[in-house]
Design a protein around this nucleic acid. Sequence first.
DNA 1: AAGTTTCCGGAGAACGTTTTCCCATGCTGC
DNA 2: GCAGCATGGGAAAACGTTCTCCGGAAACTT
Lengths: 353, 353
Amino acid sequence: MGNGAYAPSGSGVPSEGNRETVAEVTLREVALASGCSIATVSRVLAGTRPVGAETARTVRAAAERLGYRPNHVARALRSRSTGTVGLVLPQITNPFFPSLVRELEHALHAEGRAVLLADCDDDPVIEAARIGAFLGRQVDALLLIPVDERRSREAVASAAAQVPLVLLDRGCGPGVADSVAVDNAAGMALVLDHLAATGRRRPCFIGAAGTASAAVERRAAYEAGAAALDPAAPGRIELGDFSVEWGRAAVDLLWPSRPDAVICANDLIAAGALQRLRQLGADVPGEVAVTGFDDIPLAGLADPALTTVRQPVGELAAEAARLLARRPAGGVRGPRRTVRLAPELVIRASSDA
Amino acid sequence: MGNGAYAPSGSGVPSEGNRETVAEVTLREVALASGCSIATVSRVLAGTRPVGAETARTVRAAAERLGYRPNHVARALRSRSTGTVGLVLPQITNPFFPSLVRELEHALHAEGRAVLLADCDDDPVIEAARIGAFLGRQVDALLLIPVDERRSREAVASAAAQVPLVLLDRGCGPGVADSVAVDNAAGMALVLDHLAATGRRRPCFIGAAGTASAAVERRAAYEAGAAALDPAAPGRIELGDFSVEWGRAAVDLLWPSRPDAVICANDLIAAGALQRLRQLGADVPGEVAVTGFDDIPLAGLADPALTTVRQPVGELAAEAARLLARRPAGGVRGPRRTVRLAPELVIRASSDA
DNA sequence: AAGTTTCCGGAGAACGTTTTCCCATGCTGC
DNA sequence: GCAGCATGGGAAAACGTTCTCCGGAAACTT
């Protein structure tokens, strides 16, 4: 029974005995074999009510012998819980998401729930459709990284009224649903402190336009922190999107003014910036430091390796699972909770003084 | 009805009328409202048997009006098909997988099937457990990227006996299950042809040890091709694993012999090799060309951008879906099919003569 | 000794579908 | 006019659970 997590078949050679692997074994067969009723078998196996020790043993033996495996579908129909969570995200190919998905998958599987995955192609319409499909499949809950702060709102709100729903990484307007994300302001503050401590005085910022919460919060935090750093020269700010291409392009705009630190709103931008700076012959980190945000795998691979802010992906996932578990069913009750987790500064060569 | 893919609620303001969003609408309610039997409603909505035109209209109107949404769980219990496929992979954080997952998700959702995701942490034991869990949840089929050629075999074979199962990207021994993968030999041949055409004469190979099919096939193809290229100097071969670190380390072993082309078994190795070569002051591509395999996003971002072999991810996914669809149910019948898809050479700066 | 509470176990009703029967009706062909 | 046959529709049996009753027996109470 050690390895056979799913194969009721015997040991290796399928020679004799239990051929009943074909006709699915149900509670009924176990009941018949153990000489008691279906109800009793159910109770023994589910442990929902105490059952006589002797009977329990017989039942368990019979179940084991026949290789009984509960039918989750039937169970779901009756108990109105599928043990399934839908995970909806904008683009699995966004390099920040895989590790988050991984942690979520582990956290959820650990409590016996399975993960239905949907990729929205960054399209709110597809997102709404996927949410609807999952709801139709009776997921117990939804984990959602919204595509867009505004255009996802309607679908999210409507879904949150039907099942427990936790927003991840990005917000979706106030009071729409529970949410858990990294503390972007704290992360940006870590970066600025580090740069200040290593003597950088002429920072600039390459961010992303739009209303996405990560974009807004990181930009605001930079503004606040940079002004505190040196009220006279808060540094230039350029806004584009969260892409490598934009990082490259922004450097062309900023480099002429010779900043000594380029702070980027995420690692992709930073990777682009780094690449372009090197092409322009800039000395990183001697002449100029570059920092990113998120700590995607690419950050450690860049050359020089990128100083960045690591999101606590594991905690993010654990917290999301916890929020889901807390919200019982109808989901409507209770105020929305927002959890902010502290990030960690990862200092690498790109800012090493 | 345009947007409300999942919300049966009316238009905006929840003022009057249908409050039955709360108590789930079933076939029974629709039958009652349209004055006919449950069976008829089911037939109209599922289209399983012709029904009188007048009745059909009435039923459809009632269903629309009440906002009927079929209960997938009940349907699954009765029809023994959940419309769900399990996708089991070694490590979602492996940068080659996200795009594959994306394509698979789209292909499957397009035919109305939902995707259950499992990440195995590169551990065959976890893999077996996940497969078992999915089987217990009555997935209609399994899509699997095996962790290990040998150690995954038992679980895979056992699962393949129960549901249609398609192996992706990596094999798992002959005759175990249907499988679809890129033609590694053809890909390596493309690389070698390109390098020969651009005048490279002293190749070497950084590969991965072990029995994983990608490792074995790419290595064998290199040996065959390099020998054909120049029987006298087939080039050195170093074997490690599919990682950036190994790429870096291997360069230290190989560079002293001054090859003019470093052919890597995947892009991660190539990225490491590229990095180390640059650190050593080598001129890429002037002095030495570097090539990868897979065309992960990192390949285009490396500096210089990496020449590599692009896997036809979309076709891979489509073909996998097709194989699944072909195999009816029990899965045991019929010979195993193996599909090999042709890759494409992507020439970038790292090999530009 | 008669209530009363526990305890253990069984019968059977859900859960919401799909599907198999079966019964009407209205037709066709003799 | 009657067998035969499509056609449209309903009643009810599954599917495999969980869970609510209910009953009997044993163990306490009074």
